[in-house]
Design a protein around this nucleic acid. Structure first.
Length: 116
DNA sequence: GTTGTGACGACTT
DNA sequence: AAAGTCGCCACAA
């Protein structure tokens, strides 16, 4: 039985859809939340093949370093950054600005915080 | 079947 | 800090 189950794709899409406006989550965090730890790469794939009809907030998904994973300089990269900045996500040096506290906190610690 | 390539990430040098 | 290495695995060629 292939792991590429429709179910997993749907769980990933649901997890992405649940990222609140102005917040971001890492591919790995989404994978874990979808019940597929270590499948971060697959999350990228899931976003790529996601039906536009779902209108997923795909731009809120960044890599573990807090950086946009799309090719720097590409149209998609600029669009993602623009969408994020439009909802108040600030960047500094190509990285999402760390939330106030916890300079050394793991990125996932401040990422993914649905409703405080 | 095999190989190379990724919208990745954790670990080790 | 930066670069390797390895795990992961769908997909295209």
């Amino acid at each position: 039985m292939a792991v590429t189950d429709r179910k997993l794709l749907e769980r990933i899409w649901a997890a992405v859809a649940a990222i609140p406006r102005g917040r971001v989550a890492s591919y790995g965090a989404i994978a874990r939340r979808a019940g597929a730890p270590r499948r971060a790469r697959f999350v990228g794939h899931a976003l790529k093949v996601a039906p536009a009809r779902l209108k997923l907030p795909w731009h809120r998904v960044l890599n573990a370093q807090g950086r946009i994973s799309l090719p720097p300089g590409s149209r998609a990269h600029r669009l993602q950054r623009r969408l994020l900045e439009a909802e108040g996500v600030r960047f500094s040096n190509g990285r999402v600005e760390r939330a106030a506290r916890g300079d050394d906190a793991d990125l996932d610690a401040f990422l993914w915080r649905p409703r405080d």
